[in-house]
Simulated scan of single mutants.
Amino acid sequence: MTFEEYVGSRGPALYRLARLLTGDEHRAEDLTQEVLSQAYVHWRRISRADRPDVYVRRMLVNANNSWWRRRSNREVVIDAVVDRPHRVDVGGEAADRDEMWRLILGLPDRQRAVLVLRYYEDLDDATIAQILNCSPVTVRTHAMRALANLRERCGVPTTNGSRQ
């Protein structure tokens, strides 16, 4: 597969992943372009990998994490609040969609990446582990902690009375 074919088929999905990781469409465009330009330079090596898409997704997650580390101001940009809020079900409690994104963007980088890759990209734990360069057990731990963190922030009580 040529680089142009790869970008044509996977470019929109990479942008969507970047959008979900960053929470900002302009930053997502920049991040996707930055990663694709790096991938272009190394495409011969990347295309020979067992799963080039996993490799490029890892580049995207790593570039996003590096950007957050370099950034001195941790303000989070969200879209304007609409007149009629959309509702999302979170553990039995409804939360405003914009509020939910604010909460997700407030999670630590790894927890946010795990949630996005699992629930929006629909990837399995083994693939997420490859992208994040960790074990599947670590992926499950981050997912449990992220969901517990979100439930706590939304005021949803845990079922067994203890934190997960």
Rank of each mutant, 00 (worst) to 15 (best):
T2Q: 08
E4V: 14
E5N: 13
V7K: 11
G8F: 01
S9R: 14
R10D: 00
Y15P: 00
R16D: 12
L21V: 01
G23Y: 05
D24A: 07
A28E: 00
E29M: 13
S37I: 00
S37Y: 09
S37T: 05
S37V: 04
A39H: 02
W43Y: 04
I46M: 05
A49V: 04
P52R: 07
P52C: 06
D53P: 02
D53V: 06
V54L: 15
V54N: 02
Y55I: 02
V56H: 04
V61N: 09
N64K: 07
S66W: 08
W67A: 14
W68H: 08
N73F: 03
E75Q: 10
V76T: 13
D79M: 13
A80S: 05
V81T: 10
P85V: 09
R87D: 03
G91Q: 04
G92I: 08
E93S: 15
D96F: 05
D98F: 09
W101S: 11
W101N: 13
L103H: 06
I104W: 00
L105S: 07
L107G: 09
L107H: 04
Q111V: 09
V114W: 08
L115K: 12
L115Q: 09
L115H: 08
L115R: 06
R118D: 06
Y119K: 15
Y120F: 15
E121I: 11
L123N: 06
L123W: 03
D125L: 13
D125P: 11
A129K: 09
A129T: 01
L132P: 08
L132K: 12
N133S: 14
C134V: 13
C134R: 11
S135T: 15
P136V: 11
V137S: 15
V137E: 15
V139S: 09
R140N: 12
R140Y: 05
H142Q: 14
M144I: 13
M144G: 08
M144K: 15
L147W: 05
L147Y: 04
L150A: 06
L150W: 00
E152G: 10
R153F: 01
P157W: 01
N160I: 07
S162F: 03
Q164C: 03
Q164R: 09
